[in-house]
Every structure is written in C-alpha cells, then in structure tokens.
C-alpha cells in the first residue's frame, strides 16, 4: 500500500477514535462510540499489515489469535463488580507492550527506518527511552493498582520515612541513565532504565490508598497514552501520536473529573503519602473509607 494511502487510512482511524471517545461521553451515543472504536482499531491493524515491510504473517496471525481468545474469554467471564481491577490489569499489558515495542526498535532499528544498530538517530533514542520508561511505570503501577483493588495487597497507603526522597533519587538516576543511554546507545543501560522504571512504578502507586485507585487507574491510562505517543514519535507514525495524545489528555482529565466528583484534591491523590510525612499519610487513610468512588460509579451505571 502506498505510503500516502496508509497515512490517510491512519487519519481515518484517528478520527474514528476521537468519535469513539466523544460517543462514550453520553449514554445515548455510547454504544455507537464503542463501534467507532472497533472500526478505528480494525483499520489501524489492517493498514499496518498491508505495509510493504510486513512480510512474515505467521507470528502476527498467531499472536492476534492468542490475544483474541484470551481477551474475549476474560471479558465475557469477568464479574461486573471487578471492572476497575480488570481495567488496571489491561493497562499493565499496554505498558508492557510499549516496553517491548521500544526494545524491538532498539534491536532492529532498520525495520522502523530510524537508523542502523549502533547508529540510531538521537531523537529516536530519546523517544525510545521515554516510551520504555513510561511504559514500564505504567506496567508496574497498574500491577499495584490491580493488586490493591483485588485485595491481594492491603488497600492502606504504604508509607515509610524518606519515601519521597527515595522516589526523587530514583527519578534523577533514571533521567541520568537515560541521558547516558541516548549518548552511547548501550543496550545494558536501556535494560537498567527499564528496570528502574519498573521499581519507581511500584513505589509511586504503593502509597496511594485503595479508595483512590479508580483515579489512579485513569491516570495510568493517561500514562499509557503518553507512552504510545512517544512510540509514535519514534516510529514517525501519526496515528500513534494522535491516539497517544488523545488517550493521554483524556485520561488525565477523567482522573481530574473523578477527583472532583468525590471532593478530593487531584494533587493529594496523585502524591499519596507524599509531602506531609506521617500526618499527611494518616489524613489520607482516614479520609478514604467512606468515599469508595469505584462502587458509587458502578451503582450509577446500573441504574
């Protein structure tokens, strides 16, 4: 398929995704919105498979088949009350997929046209590290959110002294490693970057209380959008950029709206036990239990 044709197809797919999000914001158009989303995804996948660089279809069909079966079975079997943790679990998959895509680009830059091994363009390396780091944070953060919502881990905020200093330190180290990686294109540094990002994902979400988890899930959704956008810049793919920005900003707005609906400050939710040391932490844990935002939403949805 000619490059221009596939760019137009990607554009149509992007518009369908916008209409999907728009549809989902009103009960009258919600179902149509979901169909728009499915159509957009179908166009995106078919267009990519028709790309002249895509030649081996065996693993693609196998992968799509495995994913389709597992995904559909999970979606049909899941209890409606378990919805928030299901979405959290799904997010972790997107995060991991984004890390894998970034790694694939590092090992085979030729397939993406971003240079050759050892001489990948600097801009692409930056986008690659951003995508991998945010993807890894999305992955581990979503796992924690899932575990908290599922009751596998206590829903109480886990706070320890010096926590935010530790997070800050790890954050700085991640940025520093990222910078060296971009300069040297050293593969071990890439994996170190990914590993530390996994760790910081855990540490960021652990101090946030269980009742605030729906907000966190939406925020992680936003992260998964940003990582897709980073991948879009890396691959020079407009669809990934459009959808990434769309999901990134709508996820952030949605988490803000949800905070407002339960009378919580966005900042205090996102930072969890941050800032006020133990006093702040205990205020968070006392404030939590009566709100239970997730179940309130479920109830409304059923009415």
């Amino acid at each position: 398929m000619a490059a221009n044709l596939s760019a137009v197809a990607y554009l149509i797919s992007g518009v369908l995704f916008i209409m999907a999000l728009r549809g989902l914001s009103s009960p009258v158009t919600a179902r149509r919105g979901n169909y728009f989303g499915i159509a957009g995804m179908l166009i995106a996948i078919v267009t990519t498979i028709l790309n002249p660089n895509v030649l081996g279809f065996d693993l693609i069909i196998l992968g799509l088949g495995i994913g389709a079966v597992i995904g559909t079975i999970i979606a049909l079997r899941i209890q409606m009350t378990a919805m928030p943790q299901l979405i959290a679990a799904f997010h972790s998959l997107v995060g991991l997929a984004a890390v894998l895509v970034a790694s694939a680009a590092l090992y085979a830059p030729e397939s993406y046209g971003i240079g050759i091994t050892g001489q990948i363009k600097t801009a692409s390396l930056i986008e690659m590290s951003l995508g991998a780091a945010i993807g890894a944070i999305t992955f581990s953060g979503s796992l924690v959110a899932f575990a908290k919502l599922q009751g596998l881990v206590t829903g109480d905020p886990l706070v320890f002294p010096g926590q935010h200093w530790l997070n800050l330190l790890i954050g700085i180290v991640i940025v520093a490693i990222g910078a060296v990686f971009v300069a040297q294109e050293a593969i071990p540094l890439f994996w170190l970057l990914v590993g530390l990002s996994f760790v910081i994902g855990f540490l960021i979400i652990l101090p946030i209380g269980g009742a605030d988890m729906p907000v966190v899930v939406s925020m992680l959704n936003s992260y998964s959008g940003w990582t897709a956008a980073a991948a879009g810049f890396m691959l020079s793919n407009d669809l990934l950029i459009i959808v990434g920005a769309l999901v990134g900003s709508s996820g952030a707005i949605l988490s803000y709206i949800m905070c407002r609906a339960m009378n919580r400050s966005f900042i205090s939710v996102i930072l969890g036990g941050f800032g006020g040391e133990s006093a702040g932490a205990s205020a968070v844990s006392q404030g939590e239990k009566p709100h239970r935002a997730g179940s309130a939403d479920d109830g409304q949805a059923g009415n």
Partner: peptide, 12 residues
C-alpha cells in the same frame, strides 16, 4: 484504544 501500540508491534 491505547492498545493501538499494536501498530508498532506488528511492524516489529
């Protein structure tokens, strides 16, 4: 929708 990242995976 965010799993449109599959586009990158398909190319890989």
């Amino acid at each position: 929708i965010s799993s449109v990242i599959i586009v990158g995976a398909l190319i890989a």
